[in-house]
C-alpha cells in the first residue's frame, strides 16, 4: 500500500494537533490514516461540475425556517459559571495556565 503520510508528515501533524504519541500508537494511527486515504481517494472518481456549490450541511437554513443570527447584544451567561467547579486550576476567578512559550519567528 502506498504511504502518502510518511513519518515526517505524520510527526508534523502530531505536533500541530498538540499530541504526544507512543511509538505503538504512532504506528497504528499512521497505518489507519493511510488506509483511510485510499478510501478517500475514491471521491476523485466522481465527476463534479466546476460550478457545483458546496453544502455546509444537508438542510438549507433559510429565512423560512431559521431565525438567523441573533442581535449583537450582550447577553450575560445564566447561570453564572462557577469556574472553581470545572476548571483545573483557579485563583480569584481566573484560570491559571503555564507561561506561553515565546518563539522567534
Amino acid at each position: 500500500m502506498k504511504e502518502e503520510i510518511n513519518s515526517q508528515v505524520f510527526d508534523h501533524l502530531v505536533s500541530l494537533a498538540a499530541l504526544k504519541l507512543t511509538s505503538q500508537e504512532a504506528e497504528y494511527l499512521r497505518g489507519q490514516m493511510n488506509q483511510q486515504l485510499q478510501v478517500i481517494h475514491e471521491m476523485e472518481q466522481i465527476p463534479i461540475e466546476e460550478e457545483l456549490e458546496i453544502s455546509s450541511h444537508g438542510v438549507a437554513l433559510t429565512p423560512a425556517n431559521s431565525s438567523g443570527l441573533r442581535e449583537d447584544e450582550i447577553d450575560p451567561l445564566k447561570p453564572k459559571l462557577n469556574l472553581e467547579k470545572i476548571a483545573p486550576d483557579v485563583k480569584d476567578n481566573f484560570i491559571i495556565v503555564p507561561e506561553i512559550p515565546h518563539h522567534k519567528i
Binding site: 471521491m43 476523485e44 466522481i46 463534479i48 456549490e53 458546496i54 453544502s55 444537508g58
Partner: peptide, 10 residues
C-alpha cells in the same frame, strides 16, 4: 470535494 459530494448526495 467532499462538501460538493454532499451536494450531489442531497
Amino acid at each position: 470535494r467532499a462538501l460538493k459530494i454532499r451536494t450531489q448526495i442531497r
